[in-house]
Design a protein around this nucleic acid. Structure first.
Lengths: 154, 154
DNA sequence: TCTGAAACTGCCAGGAG
DNA sequence: CTCCTGGCAGTTTCAGA
């Protein structure tokens, strides 16, 4: 789980441009292609690089609504928390789910095609889910910053 | 801004694996490589595909803390909102920032190396920023779901 | 379909522990 | 002396026209 300056640069560049060719990556970090590729594979195997994803524009695909939902549960017993997480995992509109400290138990990031489909989703699949005490939702007016992952300087 | 079933599959596959080769992508969507590549380039030019990013493990890079901050401002005049967004843009620990409706004006996703560096960041760069009325932070206990982007079925 | 480029493999060299 | 890491050369596969 240790990494050096070259590994850090590799991760930074791939976070910035996940489809950069290995030869370009290699010359940017000051290596030839083969050892550079070996480092990338090692970082993938170690789990430092978990994958690569195209960044799609939700609006372009018809998902014009992004909503955050703050969820409080009735019971915070571990089994009940896991039951809620399992329920969340089944719902494709919920893209991210984090367990929080404090009186909000979970925060969810949800995308939906429009307001009416979101309302239907909210009332049929979230507020009525088992063990849900309270759900507070906020529509996003706009996204003013959206950077991937972690601050690593290229 | 229209797309067909093949485009949808291309985007789904690239969201799932951003480093998939074009020939593999082509055979999965039932095309030969050249027209598939043309479609990918067109989707990139149209802005449907905004980029490609490696998904790095924050903990592996030493960022063990993820925090959500709910921020309320004193003034919601557009110029003041934009001033706050400009301030947020300068801070690398803030990875995402969304303007919300309701009494919370912004929600921020913040990563930090540890609790003490987060506290320092919070008190020196966020709660003391101009126009900030109130900041409520919640540490993430764990992330139970983290999918990229948009629900498109492969 | 076709050409140049990139991905990947095995092997060897050098330096550090 | 051994291990680790980078470089080189050759083959296969892919990108792009």
């Amino acid at each position: 789980m240790a990494f050096d300056e070259i590994d850090r640069q590799i991760m930074a560049h791939l976070q910035d441009d996940g489809r950069m060719t290995n030869v370009e990556l290699a010359e940017r970090v000051g290596l030839t292609a083969p050892p550079c590729l070996r480092r990338v594979r090692t970082l993938e195997e170690k789990g430092a690089i978990r994958g690569y994803h195209a960044d799609l524009d939700p609006a372009w695909l018809g998902y014009s609504i992004t909503v955050f939902a703050m969820v409080s549960l009735k019971s915070q017993a571990e089994a009940d928390l896991e039951a809620f997480e399992a329920h969340v995992a089944e719902i494709p509109e919920i893209r991210e789910c984090y367990m929080l400290n404090g009186d909000i138990d979970f925060i969810l990031k949800i995308v939906a095609r429009d307001l009416s489909s979101f309302q239907q989703f909210l009332t049929t699949r979230l507020t009525t889910a088992p063990n849900v005490e309270h759900v507070r939702t906020s529509l996003t007016i706009r996204s003013s910053k959206s950077l991937p992952g972690v601050p690593v300087e290229t």
